[in-house]
Design a protein around this nucleic acid. Sequence first.
DNA 1: TTGTACGCGTTATCAA
DNA 2: TTGATAACGCGTACAA
Lengths: 340, 340
Amino acid sequence: MKTTIKDIAMRANVSITTVSRVINQKTDGMSETTRRRVLEIIQEMNYHPNKIARSMITKRTNTIGLIIPDIRNPFFPELVRGVEDVAKKYHYNVFLCNTDEDIEREESSLRLLRENHVDGIVFANSYTSKDRMSQGLVYKPTTPIVLIDRGLDDEMFSSVYVDNEKAGYLGTKHLIDLQHVKIGCITGPGYTQNTQYRLNGYLKALEEASIPINKDLILSGDFRMEGGYHAAKILLNRENVTAIFAHNDLMAFGVYQAASELGVNIPGDLSVVGIDNIKYNQLLNPGLTTIEQSVYKMGETAAQILFEQIEEGGESQRVKVNMEPTLIVRNSTKGLPSMC
Amino acid sequence: MKTTIKDIAMRANVSITTVSRVINQKTDGMSETTRRRVLEIIQEMNYHPNKIARSMITKRTNTIGLIIPDIRNPFFPELVRGVEDVAKKYHYNVFLCNTDEDIEREESSLRLLRENHVDGIVFANSYTSKDRMSQGLVYKPTTPIVLIDRGLDDEMFSSVYVDNEKAGYLGTKHLIDLQHVKIGCITGPGYTQNTQYRLNGYLKALEEASIPINKDLILSGDFRMEGGYHAAKILLNRENVTAIFAHNDLMAFGVYQAASELGVNIPGDLSVVGIDNIKYNQLLNPGLTTIEQSVYKMGETAAQILFEQIEEGGESQRVKVNMEPTLIVRNSTKGLPSMC
DNA sequence: TTGTACGCGTTATCAA
DNA sequence: TTGATAACGCGTACAA
């Protein structure tokens, strides 16, 4: 039997109300003597309040949910830490849910979190189509939700995301500035919104430079090494590209592998750009030029917004934060000798 | 106002007991008619049971805690997934807590989890000294705890860990077999038990080969790239080692960086071995020879044990699982030309 | 300055 | 086959 507020009350010869007051610092007009005595007994009996019971009354669980595709994708640990560090500051615990981009798991996570009465949810729904999302989320409009990485174009939710079109534009522009023309593009899965926006940026940069668009240079990947590897093989064997823009670093890693197998030198024969600036891409030789998204900060920001909405009790304004991506040049990109 | 079991009962013209029975599949001797009607209303009103209230009675929250040092260390995402996947199978949610190896945060995490009445805890206390741990955990002997990565030598807790002495032995033996004699060793922080065991393995292998032990070749790192980098600089500049055994892959990455800066060729001038077999070390050129620990499996196993203890209700046997590390040879190690 | 008593949403016990 | 009611541990309005 765990010790309860009742046990403390008995031992201290006071009512449970008094004990409750001590616990919740409601000691406005209370005798110092009883306060001290209660505190002592609490120590002595090693009493810890039962949050479950408390939240029955207060309607607060001091708990938030965090839904992501897969913690093993090195993009997400940073994000998770950002969220958790803010949560800790607010004395909140966080439930972590991995969905593997599976719509079933997204919805079951949402349901589970709701049944656990979390006070809010940070949702990295990067890979979900809009319609299904809305459908899934409509379940629980009462709990504040902040979308991360790519928001729905929906007034319903706050969101924090990177300007993906700009990311796509920056990477492509960098390659064009280096005189590249045959620039391969490896996108994420077709159904993600990130992919669409990043691709738009790519197209825009080409257009601006009056480089004709060749659809054979645009291949669809999976945001994982494998996808980058296979796409790169095709681009290198069939299309003779001099540069590849992979829509995330993991796929760029795959490009490195393919290049290595084919005896293609980076950056001598091939320039490579990624997106994310994953920490461990410094390991690559040569270092990978990439577009940085401040992932940790995204997590922090999303959590911050969420807690503001929680505190304001649901009737707060929806917020959309747009983060700027920045180009980080390393040694995987190199100017093409200008052809005469 | 959320819909409650009461609302359902009203609308269905039955008692809350009946509704409760439907929810909990206790429909043994129940008329199909009422069952169907209740089910319909539940659908219609989009009712979801309140787990908080339920756990007041059942004393079960269907929630476990997972405490780790830092999710950004690429060792842990695998472990987290292992735990979470098993948890999901049991319809459990998991609270994630990062401690940064800070004893304060470990204890506050423990306290927070306990206040949230988790049914069990998986604790990766890799970096905590035995005494403080016991002190911290003694708080809550009622909740099953499974230690991971390195167990306390304590009958109190179940644990899953890798035979770290063997890991240290295997890596060193491999280098010795390649004729290396001046083998540098970069350990983890001195206060971790892993470090002690791995170092023992290193020493044992040297002894077996009758290679005299040189304490200058043993440096203490931090399990991060930075530590590996600095230690490698010292070993290469001052000690002329022909091989370095880093006690995890991250530090081996640091060794690569140092070698690259100093113009030292791997494996030509220097052989390198790590521990962990982090997924992205395939990216390194040359590929890193390392000792694999099946991290995902460790997570799974720990969670499995935890759930067995939860189901058995606390009076179960303590279990200690010892996982075998295996050597994975890639291209970072090379035989030394035998000196004549 | 302190205490009594009710209610939060659910399950379990016993009765009908 | 179904229902009334007591718990679970706590916070709080109101009373003393």
